[in-house]
């Protein structure tokens, strides 16, 4: 990181601090009802208290666990389904249109069906999260397989690779950028659906926490939950970027 970049980041950080101070000033001047908008000081106090007494920390863990489980499940299934579809022309012809039909369906619309089938349970939330995160993965993998350099197919044939060997040694590595991009979209999806699922099914998690805080007009607790959700999104996306950078290092040399 160059010195210039550091300076810009510091300046940018100062601007962000300025916004928080503005928020504080607005809250102190009571320009907005304190019932709706607590100052950052009160939100921060609620966040610290919630983490110290373990309540908020437990909720946070619940949400993160749901998000990661659903996401990993979806990623695994999505890559397998995508690889099967991407490496077989027959699968493309038969299942491609079906996929295109389901794709624009908002994932959350599946929630009432999941409730009808599984009740208001953890299994319901997990299946909704996994279902919603599955489609971006399938599409990304199919797209990655479709854009494998044609000459690599020839190479595979020349080397006499079996279909499985071709997938493992050529197609999967070269679709990795697409797969990782799909995993990133899936992760966002998984977080959103975990929160929605918790709200509806009253599972122990941040979604439920912010809903209950709002119902009992505990605005600082509500904002603490929202901040924690934002941090979760930010940290998980950054972690994924780091992984992406490491896994795709070979690409930079191209």
């Amino acid at each position: 990181m160059t010195a210039r970049r550091m300076l810009w980041l510091m300046a940018s950080f100062a601007v962000a601090v300025g916004f928080v101070m503005l928020w504080q000033a607005v809250a102190d001047a009571k320009l907005v009802l304190p019932l709706f908008l607590p100052g950052p000081d009160r939100a921060w106090a609620a966040l610290v208290a919630g983490i110290e007494n373990g309540i908020l920390a437990t909720k946070w863990l619940g949400t993160v666990e749901r998000m990661i489980n659903g996401w990993l499940l979806a990623s695994l299934a999505g890559i397998v389904i995508g690889a099967m579809m991407g490496s077989s022309a027959a699968a493309q012809t038969y299942f491609g249109p079906f996929l295109e039909l389901i794709r624009p369906l908002p994932a959350s619309a599946i929630i009432p069906v999941a409730i009808a089938l599984l009740g208001l349970s953890d299994a319901m939330v997990l299946s909704v999260v996994a279902f919603g995160a599955l489609w971006p993965m399938v599409l990304a993998t199919v797209h990655g397989f479709a854009s494998v350099e044609p000459r690599l197919h020839e190479v595979g044939r020349t080397l006499g690779l079996s279909r499985w060997e071709f997938i493992r040694k050529i197609a999967l590595p070269s679709s990795l950028p697409d797969i990782l991009a799909g995993m990133r979209i899936s992760l966002t999806m998984a977080l959103v659906l975990s929160v929605v699922g918790e709200m509806l099914a009253s599972r122990d998690g941040l979604g439920n926490w912010i809903l209950l805080s709002a119902r009992s007009f505990r605005a600082p607790d509500l904002f603490a939950g929202v901040i924690l959700l934002g941090v979760t999104g930010l940290v998980s996306a950054s972690l994924l970027s780091i992984v992406e950078g490491r896994l795709l290092r070979w690409r930079a040399t191209r």
Binding site: V192, V195, S213, L229, G230, V231, G233
Partner: peptide, 9 residues
């Protein structure tokens, strides 16, 4: 990164 749905309360 704040999920929009978290703001609905």
């Amino acid at each position: 990164p704040v999920p929009a749905i978290a703001l609905f309360p």
